[in-house]
C-alpha cells in the first residue's frame, strides 16, 4: 500500500466508525437540547438494541451473506431495534425522568445514572438466556459473536484500498437517517414544536404545544436512532457485549460535546470528527495515545469555543 492508499483507507475506516458514533451522539444532543439532561442511560439503551438484533438473528437463523435476503434481514433488524429502543427510551423518560421534570437538574442526572445501571444489568441478564446465539448463555458477561451477515468483501474489487459491504451499509443507513432527521426538525410541525420547546417550554405550552408529548417524541426519535446505530455497530464489529454501551456512550457523548451539545449538525460533525481522529491517531501516532489525543482535541476546542464547534452559532438547541 502506498502512503496515499493508507491515508484513504484510514479515512474510510474513520468515517464508518464516526458515523456510528454520530448516530448515537444525536440521541444525547436531542435530549440535552430539549430537557437539558445528559442521558447517561443512552449508551446502555444502544447496547440493548444490539442484543435484540442478535436475538432476532438467532430466531431467523441468519448466518451469512445471502444477497438481497441479507439486505432485507438487515432492514428488519434495523426497524425492530429502532422501534424497541425508541419505545424503551420513551418508557424510561415516562417512568424515571418525567416525574422529575420540575426537580433540580441534579436529581434528573442521578436518575439517568440509575437508569443506566438498570439497562446494563438487563443486558447482563439477556446475555445469560439459554439461546444458541449467546452460546447457550453459559457466560453472560462474555462478548457475543454477531454473525457476519455482510462479509468484508471489497466492493472496489482488487484494489489495495478496501471499501467493504459493511462500510457501504453503514453509509447507506446513516446518511439517509441524518438527512431525514434534519428535514424532520426543520420542516415538520413536530420539528417546529421540538424547537419551540427547546427554546422555552413555558412559552411553548402557552402556545398550545403539549410539552410532555413533544419531549416523549424526542426521546423516541433519539432512542430509535440508537437502535439503528446498534445494528450497524453489531454488523461492523461482529461482536457485542453488555458493557459496550459504556464505551460507545462515552465516545458519543464526547462527540456531542465536541460538536456543541444541543446542536444536531454539531453531533454529526463531532461523531465523524472523533472517528477520523481515532483512525489517524492509530495510524500516525500510536494506538495507546489515541484516547489522550481525542480528549486533547476536545479540551483545545472547548478552550477556544466553550460551547463546542457549532454550539455558539446555532442558537436553536435541537
Amino acid at each position: 500500500m502506498t502512503d496515499a492508499e493508507v491515508f484513504l483507507q484510514q479515512l474510510i475506516t474513520g468515517l464508518s466508525n464516526g458515523m456510528i458514533i454520530a448516530l448515537i451522539a444525536i440521541g444525547y444532543t436531542m435530549v440535552y437540547g430539549i430537557v437539558e439532561l445528559i442521558n447517561f442511560a443512552h449508551g446502555d439503551l444502544f447496547m440493548l438494541g444490539s442484543f435484540l438484533a442478535l436475538t432476532i438473528v438467532g430466531a431467523l437463523g441468519l448466518e451469512s451473506w445471502s444477497g438481497m435476503g441479507s439486505v432485507a434481514a438487515v432492514l428488519i433488524l434495523i426497524a425492530s431495534s429502532a422501534c424497541f429502543c425508541g419505545t424503551l427510551n420513551w418508557t424510561v423518560d415516562r417512568l424515571a425522568y418525567r416525574p422529575l421534570r420540575r426537580a433540580p437538574k441534579l436529581s434528573l442526572l442521578v436518575a439517568a445514572i440509575g437508569a443506566s445501571f438498570v439497562l446494563m444489568n438487563l443486558g447482563l441478564f439477556w446475555g445469560g438466556l439459554p439461546l444458541d446465539v449467546f452460546s447457550g448463555g453459559i457466560a453472560a458477561a462474555a462478548p457475543k459473536d454477531f454473525p457476519d451477515l455482510f462479509p468484508d468483501l471489497n466492493v472496489l474489487g482488487n484494489s489495495a484500498v478496501q471499501i467493504t459491504r459493511t462500510d457501504v451499509g453503514v453509509f447507506a443507513v446513516t446518511i439517509p437517517l441524518m438527512i431525514g432527521l434534519t428535514l424532520l426538525v426543520k420542516m415538520t410541525k413536530l420539528g417546529k414544536a421540538m424547537r419551540a420547546v427547546a427554546q422555552n417550554p413555558t412559552a411553548a405550552a402557552l402556545m398550545g404545544i403539549s410539552v410532555d408529548r413533544v419531549i416523549g417524541a424526542t426521546f423516541f426519535i433519539g432512542g430509535a436512532l440508537a437502535g439503528a446505530a446498534s445494528v450497524m455497530y453489531a454488523l461492523y464489529n461482529n461482536s457485542i457485549g453488555f458493557q459496550m454501551g459504556y464505551r460507545a456512550g462515552m465516545d458519543a457523548f464526547t462527540a456531542a460535546v465536541l460538536g456543541g451539545i444541543g446542536s444536531l449538525p454539531g453531533a454529526m460533525l463531532g461523531g465523524i470528527g472523533i472517528g477520523l481522529i481515532r483512525a489517524m491517531s492509530d495510524q500516525y501516532v500510536e494506538s495507546k495515545w489515541t484516547n489522550a489525543i481525542v480528549f486533547g482535541v476536545l479540551i483545545l476546542v472547548l478552550i477556544f469555543r466553550p460551547s463546542g464547534i457549532l454550539g455558539a452559532k446555532q442558537r436553536e438547541k435541537v
Binding site: 493508507v6 484510514q10 461492523y236 464489529n237 459496550m244 481515532r278 483512525a279 495510524q283 494506538s287
Partner: peptide, 12 residues
C-alpha cells in the same frame, strides 16, 4: 469497539 485502523497500519 474495533481495531480496523490498527490493522490497516499493520497491513501497510
Amino acid at each position: 469497539p474495533n481495531y480496523r485502523s490498527l490493522v490497516t497500519k499493520i497491513k501497510a
